[in-house]
Design a protein around this nucleic acid. Sequence first.
RNA 1: GCCCGGAUGGCGGAAUGGUAGACGCUGCGGCCUUAAAAGCCGCUGUCCCCAUCGGGGGCGUGCGGGUUCGAAUCCCGCUCCGGGCACCA
Length: 851
Amino acid sequence: MNRYEPREIEGKWQRLWADEGTWEVPNPGADGFDPEKPKAYVLEMLPYPSGEPHVGHLKCYSVGDAIAHFRRRNGFEVIHPMGYDSFGLPAENNAIKTGEPPRVATERSIDSFRRQFTEWGVSIDWNREIATHTPEYYRWTQWIFLQLFHRGLAYRTRAPVQWCPNDATVLANEQVVDGRCERCGTEVETRNLRQWFFRTTEYADQLLADFEKLDSWPEHVITMQKNWIGRSEGAEVVFRCEEAGLDFPVFTTRPDTLFGATFFVIAPEHPELEKLVAGTGAEEAVREYVNEVARATVQERGDEGRPKTGVPLGRTVANPVNGEEIPMFVADYVLMDYGTGAVMAVPGHDERDFAFARAFDLPVRRVIGPAADEGPGDEGPGGEGPGGEDSEGELPYTGDGPMVNSGRFDGLDNREAYDQIVAWLDREGRGEASVNYRLRDWLVSRQRYWGAPIPIIYCDRCGTVPVPEDQLPVELPEIGDYAPRGQSPLEAAPDWVNTSCPECGGEARRETDTMDTFVDSSWYFLRYLDPDNDQEAFSRESADHWMAVDQYIGGVEHAILHLLYARFFTKALADMGFLGVSEPFSNLFTQGMITRDGAKMTKSRGNTVSPAEYVARHGADAARTYVCFMGPPERGGDWTDEGVEGVHRFLSRLWRAADEIAGSGDTGSGPADSTALADGAGGDTRELLAKAHWAIEKATGDFNRGFQFNTVIAAVMELVNEIYRVKDGLLEDATGREALRFATTTAASLIQPFAPHLAAEVYERLTGDRVWEVPWPEADPAMLRSDTVKIVVQVNGKVRDRIEVAEGAAEEEILAAARSAANVTRHLEGSEVVKEILVPGKLVNLVARPA
RNA sequence: GCCCGGAUGGCGGAAUGGUAGACGCUGCGGCCUUAAAAGCCGCUGUCCCCAUCGGGGGCGUGCGGGUUCGAAUCCCGCUCCGGGCACCA
């Protein structure tokens, strides 16, 4: 008998697939393109090539490849490309340390990734491979930047931005977590710099509304994005400071509490602050406070539990609803980059305003009573009933109720008052309904070397001039020193920086910042569709055919950043007429993280798993199948060596069964016909065939039901166990051998999405056919039925016996058999049956009561 | 604090109103072998009872209640663990 040698088998099939270009698919208009064939775009998130792929990659591409194979065998033309997110900080930081150019290290990593993906046997159309650091790619990243610029969606402005002192660059809001740099964990600082932004806020509403257009995204990812966009409805209300001659609009979600405003707060960065305090005598104290706030880290300022601080300004503003003059303060709990940078403070109905009022001993006024229907039957502590002093209720009160202390609105339900007050403000020209978002514009400038240069030139005469499209790409120059010094390392390449103005031809300077690498990965799925096009980023025709991505697979850690940016790009490109779809990813699958010894794998813990090592030891098929078998793929799992070995053992059993059957002499060729075989067959032959059809049914169902790969694989394991149970007996005769051949080829066929090499080998040996070209099997309903069914008999809900009855037996017949089952009669002794429940094909429950 | 997940044998998990623990791992036993490895076969939630093969019963899906003939599954109230958000007016 031969041994299962995965490395030999895998190498053989990988060479064949590469030589034949098995996974390559043609674009519309190309040779072999079939317009009738439905397409499926299966895509895993673009990997960042660093060193070697880790188990997270193994899982992602194993899951994605299983889906790709399954779709192909269900009749789809599957586009399944691969590339590299090859700009980015790790390569650059390595360059700073070692002096080795980032390109060299990056391309070495890319080679390693490509080699391993090949060794894993992932079914990739390598003709479409891209890498974002190549001029052929970033030329079009720059081109898209220019399109956004022309449309007003890319702009440059001076703004307070978050600066990471360690990485020496600014960061997008999304890249700051708890006041720290998401990448390196350093506390970020606020700096006031001129930077490039993409106007993501322009699409805030559409980004929210279009969740409707998605077929299947995990609910929690949608929730996370909704929270991130943070839409709030409210009103903009103008408060006027007559002494300073200034108007201060505020945004509030609670215009119904307007009569409760007892003071007014503006942010320390508010542009009118200096003008406002001039001549009040508070200038010095305010300046000191503002400086103090500026020194604090973003994290310190963001701490919610911190006591409220602030400084009175010696000015008042008039409350538009009642003309009341209320004092103004500057305080850092008001943020400049949300709303208008100023708030009306209603301490009676807002926690934060309440805390500030306590600290500064300011009046607190109730303007909404507790809801009248606090619950009549509700036995609250000291429930005094409606006659009690309900205005003594706890403040701040953030619930609903009737209006009080609100002039002509008193007595109204506060929801109703909300609408009336907004309408009144509108009529008086003092305010209007308004919507605010938490989402900010996307800061894309980075003061780093290893990214796509921003294609802009600054000319003293002409101002900010976009690089003409025919001069793209603006190539990244070679430089000698990559160390960041608070400005882009590109400043150190004078030949490159100094250029001529495309408009007037005079002396001009290039923009030296590069783009955030999330820009590169916001459109790569479009470049795959037309990777060699040197006239366009992608042709409209190719995008119309292949988009949207039918199944996107990746880690949940990209739930906000990458997915939001890619959605923004898609919408902008669609609005500019380059695309016919406005959502890039119809279906999203987020795979769970693999841990080791219950902990996240990190180099410092020393608990990392090298996929290459396991592929070398047990084969790619075992490694791939194992990561899909660990548990439901959307959940995480703990890697164990025994687990991989178990899967290897299973594949090995399948291989040896096939080897034995193939070596047993006269077997048929081509696929075995199980229907013909089943005709008149009994005993083990019949049972084996039935098990094979059961496995087809189970595997197909679980595949379609949210990619439950663990149970798909378990079903095939059961089939293989059944093959072993009957194998020795059935090898005796031709019919038995044919049944075994059918069961074994079925097992190979069902395991093919996970273990494509082994499946190809087994299938070819037993049928002469290529399994990846064979349609996904279909279960024969006739084979799923059996002549008899086992029925569980319960007495009062407890299982007491099992009976076997003919399929389709009459109800009375089954109940009679149930009542007379040996162990049932014992439990019914001295009782009478008062109710009989029959679940067809499953169970009988006899409800008995003492007689 | 708010919003999402999750909790089932020694372990990963299966079962989404109808036999709890499929499948895999671990462990134990048997066969094969001079021996070992590999392989093959069997057992493996827990406690108890009768017994020779075997058979029977109690308990059991984080905790407490409820609905139902029947609940891991549905409802109400908790506990713990994981993730996300958090001075966003």
